[in-house]
């Protein structure tokens, strides 16, 4: 991430965020589950995931939330303050795939100096996550 934080006045409605591709390794999926203290077996044991009809372990929602937050602050900079993260989940994230984030500024709140960013994380199956993140800028 860059050192500079975006200024609210420099952000326009419709601005696009640079895309970010996240390789979906088993390390990320299992590690993400463990650092979020989510020991539900489907996130770290393949047999448990397969018993639910999935081909392999799949990413937990806390990791997804974390990656969404990271995507927006990577773009906005370190002094950007996340205020709200609202997401909808779709296709699961499985090892061997790649999730590519894209995003767009869809609203600006002059009084709060906050912007709403619409984000999509797409993998080979479709949309893993879509949502809106509200971030306050200096």
């Amino acid at each position: 991430m860059s050192g500079e934080t975006l200024r609210f006045d420099a952000v326009r409605d419709g601005d696009r965020l640079p895309e970010l591709a996240i390789p979906l390794t088993a390390t990320l999926i299992v590690g993400g589950a463990i650092v979020s203290r989510d020991f539900t077996p489907v996130h770290h044991e393949r047999a448990a995931a397969q018993a639910q009809g999935m081909s392999d372990v799949f990413m937990n929602i806390l990791t997804t939330n974390g990656l969404v937050g990271r995507y927006v602050t990577d773009w906005a900079g370190r002094d950007a303050v996340l205020q709200r993260v609202a997401i909808k989940l779709g296709a699961p994230n499985l090892p061997g795939d790649t999730m590519t984030f894209s995003g767009r500024v869809v609203a600006r709140d002059e009084t709060e100096r906050a912007v709403d960013v619409e984000i999509t994380g797409a993998n080979a199956w479709g949309h893993h996550v879509t949502g809106t993140v509200r971030v306050r800028l200096p």
Binding site: V35, G66, G69, R70, V85, P138
Partner: peptide, 30 residues
Amino acid sequence: EILGDANPVYTDPDVAARSVHGGLVAPPTM
């Protein structure tokens, strides 16, 4: 480390102290 989040306000006390937060904070999505 695992999520690849390099924002120093979470991990670098010196940078965090000079940031809008005035000190270390946890990622809100945690």
